[in-house]
């Protein structure tokens, strides 16, 4: 299995408060053709971890540690070198497709920007490639002339996906890509991402807070709590045999579709005591 991304001892702190650990000592490995889900509550540091890979952290924050992508140390690269990697070798999809798209440009133009910038495509070849990409994500190619507001939420997210895979990246980072979508649309988008991952043999880093989505898409799972990784394992291990008390508690909060489960909120005080004892 080819190792695509290797993060070791990543720590993220605010510049003006270096003792406040937003992400603390996070290490993870991603391999080609595998989907790794990071799950956690808001504030667990899952999005910060993803953003730091692309060098997209706010200027108020600083990251320490090593992020190796295909053997290249990303933390040492300047902005220009990073720009050659972003969108080309690492694709990214965000939660809300409407805010990620420019409302005054056609979606075809916006997909084309990526292709021109990284592959230098122009004219008819560019047009053909845009049409091919849209077809690949299940949108009729003539919609290239549409503006974002003329598309539904699911279609916009498909456009974002077509952009992120335009240059056939080795790694796709998806930050809660289906949270803003209806369940039926969510199911379609998850299926699409899964197909693309397999076909292009990408490594996928998928951020979510929904264990249902994890069950549908993940190979491996990383559970984060207050900036730290508390447990990692395969999907089967985490979902059916969780070891860490936090993972167990988080799973106990998720309602099931059969209504058999008794919901149990997390007792943070107890968690803390348990951690101290361990």
């Amino acid at each position: 299995m080819t190792n695509i991304l290797n993060i070791s001892n990543l720590t993220i702190t605010p510049k003006n408060a270096p003792n406040r650990l937003l992400v603390s000592n996070v290490s993870l490995k991603l391999s080609a053709g595998k989907t790794t889900c990071i799950v956690g509550e808001s504030g667990s540091g899952k999005s910060l971890t993803a953003l730091s890979i692309m060098g997209l952290l706010s200027s108020q924050l600083q990251a320490q540690g090593s992020i190796q992508f295909q053997g290249q140390e990303l933390t040492k690269l300047d902005n220009k070198a990073l720009q050659g990697i972003r969108g080309a070798k690492i694709g990214m999809i965000f939660q809300e497709p409407m805010t990620s798209l420019n409302p005054v440009l056609t979606v075809g133009y916006q997909i084309g920007e990526t292709l021109t910038a990284h592959l230098g495509l122009k004219g008819l070849t560019l047009k053909d490639k845009i049409a091919a990409l849209l077809t690949q994500v299940g949108i009729p190619p003539e919609r290239a002339n549409s503006y974002p507001d003329e598309l539904s939420g699911g279609q916009r997210q498909r456009v974002m996906i077509s952009m992120s895979i335009a240059c056939e990246p080795a790694l796709l980072i998806a930050d809660e890509p289906t949270t803003a979508l209806d369940v039926t649309v969510q199911a379609q988008i998850l299926q699409l991402l899964n197909e693309l991952k397999t076909r292009m043999n990408m490594a996928m880093l998928f951020i979510t807070h929904d264990f249902g989505v994890v069950a549908d898409i993940a190979d491996d799972v990383i559970v984060m709590f207050r900036g730290e990784i508390v447990e990692t394992g395969t999907k089967q291990q985490i979902l059916s045999k969780p070891k860490h008390p936090y993972t167990k508690a988080l799973l106990a909060c998720v309602p099931d579709a059969e209504g058999k489960k008794e919901l149990k909120p997390i007792d943070y005080a107890w968690l803390k005591a348990d951690k101290a004892a361990a």
Binding site: V183, T184, Q186, A187, L190, D210, F211, G212, V213, V214, A215, D216, K235, L239, D256, A257, E258, G259
Partner: peptide
């Protein structure tokens, strides 16, 4: 209980099938 166990309409069935994690569980 009835609607979840035995949905009568195709649309309801579709919604229930789209619940994430249902297939895997």
């Amino acid at each position: 209980v009835d609607v979840y166990n035995a949905p009568q309409q195709a649309y309801t069935q579709q919604l229930l099938n789209a619940i994430p994690g249902r297939k895997a569980a």
